[in-house]
Computed example of a mutant assay.
Amino acid sequence: MKYISLFACSLAFNCTVANAQLNADQVRSSLQAHQSAVLVKDDIWIRDPYITLAPDGFYYLTGTTQMPTKQSAESAKYNVGLGDSSQVGWQVRVWKSPDLVDWKYAGAPFSLENGYWALQNQDAFKNTPKRKWHLWAPELHFINNKWVMVHTTPGPVKQGSNLAVSRTAELKGPFDFPLKDLSKGLHDPSLFKDTDGKVYIIWGNTQIAELKPDMSGFVAAPQPIHPSTLRIMGDGSKKEGIGHEGCTILKIGGKYVLFGTGWSTNKGRKGSYNLYYTVADNIKGPYGPRQFVGRFLGHGTPFQDKQGRWWCTAFYNANVPPLSTEGIQTKDLRDNAYTINKQGVTLVPLDVKVTPDGKIEIKALDPDYAKPGPDEVQKF
């Protein structure tokens, strides 16, 4: 794998993120080739990048980000986003692009101080320094001609996740919060609208619930969904679940595909952060075995571009700066958290097939992402 465009000031880590520049023509050419990973945006600190193609013809990008006024030193570029040193901010920031190449900042339509929990627990917000306000893993969904935003957060209100619905087709506030208290405690929530119009919310590892048409509650009690095979944990034990977090559902070839994220070793922050999937005929299961999508693709967004080609977002999530891709396919990474993704948004091409017998096959096309490493606990 070879990134099409790198930092203008080289990889010596002696320049700021703001100085990084991408060659638009090279990025466009690589996207058209659909063979290798492409760094499409390198001027922001971001995790959990989420991209959706809206009816207006624009791709919308959001994710876990810093505040707009935050100016990171080079030493903070690879901040892990965890603990007291976290760089994570408290707004949903958005960029839009007609072609996945030229991105324009579209503002911050939502912030924690405008959310449901800021209204319900004003004291928590008043008594918690803003540097400890954190908004994680936002997603944007255009449903029934309105924007619906979901996210998770550890504070100021513990597990104060939000489901926010715009009042018009424009991505701007004020927002309504129809789910109210039921939105609390939803780790990494995601939404899925089925072809029959029903909307589901999924979270954790993994719970699913159908939402009422006005999103004011659950049609029935949430229930767990998971692969038929058990994950092998780092200590040799076995556990249900697609992964640790970052789940989403897509419908492909009439099948329901549940994606989930986990570390290759099934130990926290050990190995590579990977993406997995499992398939079912019914959205609530039963699901088949846990299968491998790609290495270093954890909490990525699988999506189709305007030409129908599949991509997955990828981002920096490690304890050390990105590794060189030289020899990475056979490198054992079990002793720490590693990645080859640079800070910013990388798009990795996917091969998504529906076989003649109706099976769904998904894999990364770039060879540095395509196969599990020797540190992978499950054997695929």
Rank of each mutant, 00 (worst) to 15 (best):
C312K: 00
T64P: 01
L230V: 05
S161M: 07
A124I: 03
F303M: 09
K353N: 14
Y273P: 04
G236E: 11
G358I: 04
H244E: 14
D123W: 06
N121D: 15
L191I: 12
T52P: 00
C247A: 15
Q91H: 09
F218K: 03
Q71F: 03
S216L: 12
Q304I: 00
K146E: 09
L323D: 13
T206H: 04
V293F: 06
K342A: 10
S190D: 14
N319I: 01
A20W: 04
N127H: 13
L119R: 12
V40Y: 06
D281C: 01
C312I: 10
P213Y: 04
K251S: 15
G288I: 02
T339M: 04
T355N: 07
I208Q: 11
L275E: 15
K172T: 10
W147I: 11
A37D: 08
I201Q: 09
G115Q: 08
T330C: 00
L31F: 05
P156D: 14
R131N: 14
F380N: 14
L6V: 10
Q223M: 09
M1G: 15
K251M: 14
K255N: 12
A209S: 12
D368T: 13
Q291F: 00
V293T: 08
R231S: 15
D214F: 10
I362T: 08
K130V: 14
H244D: 15
L297D: 03
F315K: 06
L179D: 09
V199W: 01
G234K: 01
M67T: 11
K193G: 13
T346D: 08
N336F: 09
G107D: 04
P55W: 00
G262A: 15
L179C: 03
Q307F: 00
W263E: 11
P178K: 07
A106W: 03
D196F: 02
V94E: 09
V345E: 03
T195C: 05
L31I: 07
G285R: 00
L22W: 06
D375H: 04
